[in-house]
């Protein structure tokens, strides 16, 4: 009985240490070796459009209802990048907000019309339970995001 208890404690300790080192994994295994700064991606969208990249940063927002996206703070101040996963493939819990993520995904440059942006913002407001004023959007714009493949959160 004593042997079993000692073995259990050792196994729990080993798994705790392993978890602490590696973090919690979501989706596909990270395969890209080199990290790219979010600011570099945003500054060179045509170069990285459609490429699979690895970024690291602080999680500053999470899709509250479906857990289908997170927003990652850039290395550059006041900048962030959305990491969007297909519904149900990865579900991020709200508890990850404020933690650091290593995220692998396909960088996408997206050009939106004013109408498309209003529709998106309306959907976002519904998801987050916030209010949205359509007149706050006056023109279309180009946005960037990562189509999420895999992530490790520490």
């Amino acid at each position: 009985m004593k042997k079993i208890s000692v073995t259990t404690v050792i196994l729990v300790l080993i798994s705790t240490v392993a978890f602490a080192q590696n973090g919690k994994k979501y989706g596909e295994k990270i395969s890209v070796k080199e990290k790219t700064n979010i600011s570099t991606l945003v500054a060179n969208p045509d170069k990285y459009d459609g490429k699979t990249v690895l970024v690291e940063g602080l999680i500053v927002d999470v899709c509250e209802k479906r857990g289908c996206w997170i927003e990652i703070a850039s290395d550059k101040e006041f900048q962030k990048l959305r990491f969007k996963v297909d519904d149900g493939v990865i579900i991020f819990p709200m508890e990850v907000k404020g933690k650091t993520v290593l995220a692998q995904g396909i960088f996408e440059k997206q050009v939106f019309t004013k109408e498309q942006l209003i529709e998106q913002a309306k959907h976002h407001a519904e998801e987050q339970g916030t209010k949205f004023n359509p007149s706050s959007i006056t023109e279309g714009k180009t946005t960037y995001r990562l189509k999420g493949l895999g992530a490790v959160i520490r």
């Binding site: 500053v60 703070a73 006041f78 962030k80 907000k97 404020g98 933690k99």
Partner: peptide
């Protein structure tokens, strides 16, 4: 406190366990 972030020059977000 887990971390903090500035979305813009006039805003600050503070992440606390179970509270943003």
């Amino acid at each position: 406190v887990k971390n903090s972030f500035r979305p813009s020059p006039n805003e600050l977000e503070i992440f606390v366990e179970g509270n943003t």
